[in-house]
Amino acid sequence: MATTRSRSAKSAENGVAKGAETLPYDRDTLIGFSRTMTTIRLFEEAAQKAFRQGKIGGYLHLYIGQEALALGFLHEYRPGDKIITAYRDHAHALILGATPREVMAELYGKGTGLVKGKGGSMHLFDVKNGFWGGYGIVGGHIPLGVGFAYAQAYQKSGAMTQLYFGDGSIHNGAFHEAANLAGLWGREGMNPCLFVLENNKYGMGTSVQRATAMTDLSEKFDSYAIEHEDVDANDLFAVLECAQRVTKKIRETGTPYGIEAQTYRVTAHGAADFLERYRGKEEVAEARKHDPINRYEHRLLEMGVATEADLEAIRAEAKAVADDAVKFAEESPEPDLSELYTDVLAD
């Protein structure tokens, strides 16, 4: 469930207005945010359906209910930046510019997929658009992101890394070893890395409270002298404001920054998990009231930026995009068998 804690309130006190009236977004951009989030939602619902029909294999981890989080931070993506996340990665890839067709085809294991059918849901990569994966081992990708940031500083590129990871991975040694390096290297401006802790409250079926005695997760950044704050990540405007401010600071200083992005995983851990013994239906129902898309649409209506008819049109359009992606994936050929042995080693 989304909550706003003291540190995100602090950002409002800093004088950055949060109302759309003073936000630097025109109507097209605001409508575009709605379109992006709705497309991701309907894309993933279509994927979930296909998974249940047995058309998608392996694992399928959905981002439903967390869309505003990735969208808000990735709005600050600039060419040269590098984005890395774990296996709940569809939204990140789509926001950065991978097409719904190639992402869906990847989920279907088709040769037209984003990584040629070699990775599946957990290993989306779209390097040309700044998306550097897509990793399946909890916590294992975190050191890579810190390395990206070192290279960006070393190469004097002016670019930065956005490193996403879940609340389940913050207990893994890889986070602590990597965060320690980031803090250390950042002292000399050698680590322009935004750590985005996606706190969706569960690592598989284990809640934050059952995984650690220190449940204020962002406090863990203090151990490594990494400045941090929390944000209500189901409030797109809050995320956008936070992202704009902290990415500017990171680019200027070359130091890492930590965000604990509060959200909630309304779907099961993976699409194959039906029994949710670890939480009650009431809890999920309550969380759904804070759905980021509903909240955002409500704001658009409130501000007079969009009408109910506009939103209906966006939903219809998104549905068509998702349907088209499914059709494309279903009609695409499987990878050629000659692909089995390619991409193992580089020349």
């Binding site: 890579l144 040694g173 390096l181």
Partner: peptide, 19 residues
């Protein structure tokens, strides 16, 4: 620091991105 997983992973990140 004495943290082989961390610095090997970070080096891998560097290797992937031009170093």
């Amino acid at each position: 620091p004495i943290a082989e997983g961390g610095f090997t992973g970070a080096a891998l990140g560097m290797a992937m991105t031009g170093m």
